[in-house]
Structure formats: structure tokens, C-alpha cells
Amino acid sequence: MTTEHEGHEGAAIVAHNITKSYGSVHALSGVSITVPYGKVFGLLGPNGAGKTTLVRILTTLLRHDDGNATVAGHNIASNPNAVRATIGLTGQFAATDEHLTGRENLHLVGKLYHLKKDAIKHRAAQLLEKFSLTDAADRPSKTYSGGMRRRLDLAMSLFNHPKVLFLDEPTTGLDPQSRITLWQIIKELVAEGTTVLLTTQYLEEADHLADRIMVIDHGKIIAEGTPRELKSKVGGDVLEIHVERVDHAHRALDLVRHLAKEAPHIQEALGMISIPTAEGANAIVEAVRLLDAAHIKIADIALRRPTLDDVFLTLTGHTENAPASAPRSTGEGPHFTTGDGNFFSTR
């Protein structure tokens, strides 16, 4: 290990200046991260940002061009098997065998960890139970739903109690209920001391789970910090008001303009105004009072936290291309972006 690393000996993941190109595509151009033991690190970025590439490099599935990294103290290039022995990986696409049953998949993993027969059986049953797969345990996993397959995949990566867990977009494609369950499981693992590196396209998810977030785009780090720091970089809350009669939009805006911290935005055709504000929940109270006094009917009002769109708009000056990338996220314009219940959120 190089001297550079010594300062971080205690960290679960240390990566220095990792670069990777596919021909002329620079998937990663110099990414460095440090993840202390027991923490959750959120890697946030739009499609093609390089998230999967970084995860595959750190989990020894892919060779990097330059830079160096250690995972749980083991160098990924010179000691890949030691890395593999300590990590768990749930990739972006399920790494299960469709012809094997859920139980057989788990047994296979157990055997490949060279565990004892009884221990394998016991652990498999335990994981099937934990991930609510007991009923489906003995049918081929190709008959599983997408969510079940992801759960099986996660169970397989947890088989040997990994010290460091890599989750590449673990909740993409899950229904809200399964997502919350998965978040819960991740939190439990972290409480037990597991270090987690998780990639996501949803700021909200990173916000919810991660101690630290890194935003990458085009293979470069564009921001890093705690969720709070990041959000303050992006800007504060946005007050969104949807008036019932579109022709009231301008009058409404004039009434609440003083709540704005930056230039407000209006979409006349929809009767929508969005006002970046620093007033927090107070902005809602104030807006409701003023508009009510002026007899302007409000169809909807919400204080929303910055979304991934805002992050990218602010940090990169371009938005991710919404339709392909973020089915649950924004897409429809600012008003509909709240999605997952962060209306009135004041966290």
C-alpha cells in the first residue's frame, strides 16, 4: 500500500483518482472517495454518470485504467480475492441464476464461500425468511417478480455478512412499499456495523440513507458533502403554488413575491408558480393567508425540497434527460416532482 493511503487506513473504502475509459468515452476521469467504516455513502448521478463503472471497479469486476483503491484495507488490483471475501455486491441488474430456485441460488453462494453444509442451510433459510421469500424458496427464480428477484439478489450478497456492501441502484424498479422495506433493511445493516456504498438517481433516497453524498456526472465529481451541505449548495426549498384559475397566476405571484429568495418562476398556462424560498414552512402559511385574503383559490400548494433535477440544474447547468432516466422522479415539470411524500417536509 502506498503512503498516501496511510492516513485512511481506518476507512472501509479509499479510492484515489480512479480513471476508466471505454475507447473514447471517459466513464471516470479521476474520482476519489473515502468511506469510513460503518457509514453509508451515497453516489448520486444521472444515467451514464459513471456510477456503475465505479462500483464495478471497486468490487473487482472491472479493471480501472489508473489510480488505486483499497476496500476494507485490501488493494483491489493486487489482492482482489481478499476484497471479494469481505464485500457484498448487489449490482444494477440482478445476479441470480434463473434456473435455480431461490434456495438453490443461496446454497450456491454459500458453497462458493466455502462454508459448512449446516451453516449454509441455516443461513439460507434465515435470509429467505428475512426477505419474505420463504414461500417462493423452492421454485425457479425466473418465476419471481422483479422485486422478488432483487430481494433474492440482495440476500445473496448478504450471505457471508459482508463488511462492505455495494448497492447499485437497489430500489430502481421497486414499488414504494418494497423500497421502504429495503431502506429499513439497509438501516438495520448499518446499525450492525456494515459499511454501505449505494448509488441512486434519487436525491431523496440518498438523503434518507446516506451520511455523505457525492454527486458525479460525466465521470467527474461535481459535489460532495453531507445531505444538508449539498442541499444548501443546491438552494433551499421551493414553494410551489398551483392556482385554480390560470389567469390568477400573475396576481398570485405579485402577492407572494416577497417570499422569494431568488427569481421566481411562473408557468401561466398551468397556473403554476415556483418560488425559491428560505422561509421554510412559514412560506406556506404566509402564502395561504395572502392568497385567501385576495380570494384566489389554491388548487395545490407545497413546499418541496430540492430534487435531483435541481441539483443538476444548479451544479452542472444541465438537467438529466428525465423520461429515460427517472421514472419516478420529476419528468413532468416542477409541480409534480414531490413524488415521495416530502410535501411540507421540513427536515
Binding site: 469486476l61 471479494r84 455486491l89 445476479a95 441470480t96 441464476d97
Partner: peptide, 9 residues
């Protein structure tokens, strides 16, 4: 599944 194999020791 090959990714699974490759990520195991």
C-alpha cells in the same frame, strides 16, 4: 450470474 461469480472469493 457471472457478475455474482466474479464478486465471490
Amino acid at each position: 450470474i457471472i457478475d455474482r461469480f466474479r464478486s465471490l472469493p
